[in-house]
Design a protein around this nucleic acid. Structure first.
Length: 427
RNA sequence: GCCGAGGUAGUGUAGCAUGGCAGCACAGGGGACUGUGGAUCCCCUAGCCCGGGUUCAAAUCCCGGCCCCGGCCCCA
């Protein structure tokens, strides 16, 4: 017996039907907003991934050396490959470029609920604009996806890295210290005084960064943000004013797009230094364990990292598997329509050829299954029953011409009709 | 990398403490009820995660590994 590699899953027909149904809702929604699908290779040069995420992440990669000694890796995510694709193929096209993807990714990590070594991501990248209206539309798209899928119990949290960035730049805090601070902000029990960085960085962290990180307001109360920032920054308020104005405009526009129920939380820093402005995430409030984030995104400058000039971009990625888990826990999985509706059974072996003729003809219009086990009629009906097939079509020796017996398994009623009428009868 | 709980037919489980013929239910295949389902009855298929150790004897005890579930770290 062979077993699956750790962290992988076998997906059965019922589960796949639900996944495909959700997938197509996502695709339709992305396309409604004008995004076009792209596909990138399953593996990339290792350097592409390390350029984005640093050398340390090789610990979490399925990387390998091919027979010509190229250093490659299975993709751990899709935004770097998608931006690479943009730089390679699309950078001279009009902006914005609106790209979406739906693919599997691979990470070498300890498995948990909602965390697998092969998983699926669905996401978009809006390349070329980081204007407030672009950011607002991207967030609105994410919310529209969940609306269309029918996920209910989720939270949308929006933050901003641009404001932190402006503060850091104003105080000349080195990039290493910035990343360290941001990555520690959401940890409990962190004493910033103990961290290994310059003293002035610690002071700024305690007096400014951390207080900003504590700001939490609903979208409706967003006006409070300005006054709270003024209180924290005092005379230095002007250093973030331009960033704040953009952010406020983004929030106003977001409300215009119809988003009402979200929280602004500057703690959402999303450690990565390529995020430049707005950042957001969506988490499921039930059904998932510790890994409850189902979407992450924001405004970033990845194009430059991929060698393509300073083009601002905005995007997000769904953790598709977690989305499915969240839906499942809410009993909101789409109903499966995969089962055949008609089961064609020859009453006797003699009628098999006739049954084959009929099933072949019917398959032009309806999903049909033919009895392939040589079962007698009683067993065949029993099978149809357990498989929840709605109709059984009995090809009887007693029937004349194109007549067959159509039996409704739910009611038990049956009638003799011309088999060509079956598609209408079961429709 | 770390912590905890687990691993017995396809699925769900009993048995494990105190070692002694691996059982039950459902599912699956066949059959009876002489060719129309869900009922009933009979038969069959099918299992102790892997490898060592202790023992006359291991599903059971010990060690190691693998896998799985939850969590920590991490989370692009």
């Amino acid at each position: 017996m062979f077993k699956r590699p750790r962290g992988t899953r076998d997906l059965l027909p019922k589960e796949m039907a639900a996944r495909r149904a959700v997938e197509s809702v996502l695709r339709e929604t992305f396309e409604r907003y004008g995004y076009g699908e792209v596909q990138t290779p399953t593996f990339e040069h290792l350097e592409l991934i390390t350029a984005k995420s640093g050398d340390e992440i090789t610990d979490h990669l399925y990387d390998f050396v091919d027979k010509s000694n190229r250093k490659l890796t299975l993709r751990p995510e899709l935004s770097a490959p998608t931006i690479r694709l943009y730089v390679n193929e699309l950078r001279n096209r009009p902006k914005p470029r609106k790209l979406y993807y739906f693919e599997n990714c691979f990470r070498y990590e300890r498995t948990q609920k909602g965390r697998y070594r092969e998983f699926w991501q669905a996401g978009v990248e809006l390349v070329g604009s980081a204007r407030p209206e672009a950011e607002a539309e991207v967030v609105a798209l994410a919310a529209a996806c969940l609306e269309n899928i029918g996920l209910k119990n989720y939270g949308l949290t929006i933050g901003n890295r641009g404001i932190f960035r402006a503060v850091f730049n104003h105080y000349n805090i080195a990039e290493d210290a910035q990343n360290l601070i941001l990555s520690q902000l959401d940890k409990k029990d962190v004493q910033f005084a103990d961290l290994d960085m310059p003293k002035d960085a610690k002071n700024i962290t305690v007096s400014i960064i951390k207080p900003i990180a504590m700001i939490k307001e609903s979208l409706a109360n967003r006006k409070n943000i300005r006054s709270r920032l003024q209180t924290i920054l005092k005379d230095d308020f002007k250093i973030i004013e331009s960033e704040l104005r953009d952010f406020e405009e983004f929030l106003d526009l977001l409300e215009g797009f119809g988003a009402t129920d979200c929280e602004i939380d500057f703690l959402i820093a999303r450690g990565l230094d390529y995020y430049t402005g707005m950042v957001f995430e969506i988490f499921a409030k039930e059904g998932l364990g510790a890994q409850n984030q189902i979407l992450g995104g924001g405004t970033f400058s990845l194009v430059k990292l991929m060698g393509g000039g300073d083009v601002p971009s905005c995007g997000f990625g769904f953790g598709f598997d977690r989305l499915m888990l969240a839906l499942e826990s809410q009993g909101a999985l789409p109903a499966s329509a995969a089962a055949p509706r008609v089961f064609v059974v020859p009453e006797t072996r003699k009628m098999l050829n006739r049954a084959i003729e009929i099933v072949s003809d019917l398959r032009k219009e309806v999903s049909c299954e033919l009895e392939l086990m040589g079962r007698k009629l009683g067993k065949a009906l029993s099978y149809a029953n357990t498989e929840e097939i709605a109709y059984v079509l009995i090809v009887s020796e007693d029937s004349e011409g194109d007549e067959v017996i159509l039996k409704d398994m739910r009611s038990g009623a049956q009638k003799t009709i011309d088999y060509r009428e079956v598609p209408d009868e079961v429709g």
